[in-house]
Design a protein around this nucleic acid. Structure first.
Lengths: 204, 204
DNA sequence: GTCTATACGGCGATAGAC
DNA sequence: GTCTATCGCCGTATAGAC
């Protein structure tokens, strides 16, 4: 990652490298369990040197989460704005989510594991805001689905939203990029369960 | 809780009281974020006094988790051993899980949030063992369901197990005992989604 | 069974040399 | 941009009086 063979833009700045290293540590050991000395060591420098690049350990998670969320929500908005039918949009939202787990597993893990704690500080108030946005996206998708007749009418939309959100994001705990199942495959299987259930259909 | 009006066993020992207080703190703030001074203060004593009852902060989580797991797995075993049909057993396992969230929300939360970190230490090796046991329970239920013709034959059992486990336990993050939906109601709704899916059935 | 007092270590962060 | 050195704080845990 650090070197580009040809002369083309080697855009990964030192700052971004360090953030990527920090993100990996935060994701695997947890934010609180990761010391600035851990991050520095993984980067091959000493802890004091980190403060040339960042104000504090807190600033590091902050930047990691902000960047990640901006990208993710950009993609959700694109889906909402498209003119696909309700069921397709729902499927796309699920696919984008699993793709995000595939591409940014560390960032997703940090968000999953630390958002609750961090959200308590004013600095991280945007996390709660993003949570509300996310809920709005899924609820809209589900309600549109019901209205269009694609989803069952008696659906408890609120509960369904929670189940979807939980299952999709918690998958970061076991999904391994480059593993046996691709993110596309996982999304497809998941959608089958979600849409059609696991029970055998009785022939009528 | 501390007092029993009649002469009958007032079984909540001081030890159990302290453990309950610790569990609540661990669950809401996280194990690492909870200091022994926090626990002591919540109990109305000083931190040094805690060490009259327990070796260490670690011993406290340990005891909380061990007790909880023993009870939960006892219930799973009872279901497996019963002579109900495959679909009923699966439903019962889901119901027991939500009931456990209702009765022991703190313990479930601690297990959910801390098991990954704690599992690294030999002292908590049993957490990984319980995880394997849990997987065995669900996989058995699912495979029996497929064999009995109650569940779809093409089911990816491994993936389905993960989705069930994730959704059921993560519900501890939002389920509130005594709230608007009872655990029985949540379990029922969840089973509908899981078994029959959320898509409208096309009339054949 | 609880308190007072305190040890010991590791953490985040800073100042200034190179 | 990194290193050396170090500060101040807060965490767990201990020893012994009451």
């Amino acid at each position: 990652m650090p070197e580009a063979a040809d002369g083309r833009a080697q855009t990964t700045s030192r700052r971004e490298q360090l953030l990527a290293i920090a993100a990996e540590q935060f994701a695997t050991k947890g934010y609180k369990f990761t010391t600035v000395r851990d991050i520095a060591e993984a980067a091959g420098i000493l802890s004091g040197s980190l403060y040339h690049h960042f104000d504090s350990k807190e600033s590091m998670v902050d930047e990691v989460l902000r960047t990640f969320q901006a990208e993710l929500f950009g993609r959700y908005e694109a889906i909402l704005a498209s003119d696909a039918d309700a069921r397709t949009k729902l499927e796309q939202a699920v696919e984008v989510s699993f793709e995000t787990i595939d591409r940014h597993p560390h960032e997703v893990a940090i968000f999953q594991n630390e958002a609750a704690h961090l959200g308590a500080f004013e600095r991280f108030a945007y996390l709660a805001e993003r949570n509300r946005e996310s809920r709005a996206v899924w609820i809209t998708l589900l309600e549109d689905g019901v209205r269009a007749g694609a989803l069952r009418a008696e659906l408890d939309v609120e509960l369904t939203y929670r189940f979807i959100r939980d299952t999709v994001w918690v998958a970061v705990a076991w999904y391994r990029p480059g593993g046996r199942r691709s993110h596309t495959e996982v999304a497809r299987q998941y959608l089958t369960i979600l849409l059609d259930g696991i029970a055998a259909r009785e022939e009528s």
